[in-house]
Amino acid sequence: MSMVKKTRFNRFVRRILPWRLWVQASFLFVWLGPFGLRMHNVCGPVFHCYACPLSTFACPIGIMAQFSAIHVVPFLAIGTVLAVGALFGALICGWVCPFGLLQDLGAKVPIRKFQLPLWVGWFRYVVLAGAVFAIPWLFGEGHPLFICRICPAGALEKAVPDVITQAVTGREIVWPNAVKITIVVTMIVAMFITIRPWCRVLCPLGAIFGFLNRFSVVSMRLEEHKCSACKRCRTLCVYGGAPDKDPNHHGCLRCLECTRCGPGALTVGTVFGPEGAGDNRPEPETVKS
């Protein structure tokens, strides 16, 4: 089998990998509108509540749900998510999303972390189908399970800043309702005791990007001839994945930590790269005995 040379992109990824948190943080300059830009007629490709006083773009999931409630197809939101997801897959979740950054920072608190099984990622599709499309379509935006009403991003990025602002400015504090407070507390606790709880279990945007992992232009590849089956990649994957079995699994958030494995068998590239960065799961006839 021919050796596949590391591309320039791969070398860049290796160099930038230790700085992932800083990359995520620098993207805040885009999502948090430092110049007071409120371009809410454009959908951003990340999970960031448009009710947040600093949000630059509209949340695509919120728009999909709101448009479902008025029975209109949200071409802009679907197109944005599809185009970005088909280009990058869940790389957006791992490197760009501000709500992912928030959870990554929460995970830095040195408390014993509980590992969630990979199959919980299927719940994200239930949330996407139910709380984003079906419930708004059938019952309108007043239903208690309408995504924006149960969204922790909205609770943390709007309700919490509102309470803080009211407290700082000496105005009367208007506390959010019990549901919002429960969501905030649950989310904060979950952020500390497990890694990326929202992204892995419930995020509807992550569900779309995760599904597109298998078809995206930027793609993970496993060079089987380099893999020594040491399972180091599974140790490196904080999400409990098995990158050596399926590098483009729908539950992968593409933090790219697995590319640090010793033999360098896991790389990130594009479908146009050498041999195509395709789905490199061994096909039955090529599995070595």
Binding site: F75, A77, G79, A83, V217
Partner: peptide, 15 residues
């Protein structure tokens, strides 16, 4: 991949 990206951009343009 190319078809998905183009469909995505097409939807954005249409929208």
């Amino acid at each position: 991949s190319i078809v998905l990206v183009m469909v995505g951009f097409g939807l954005v343009v249409y929208g």
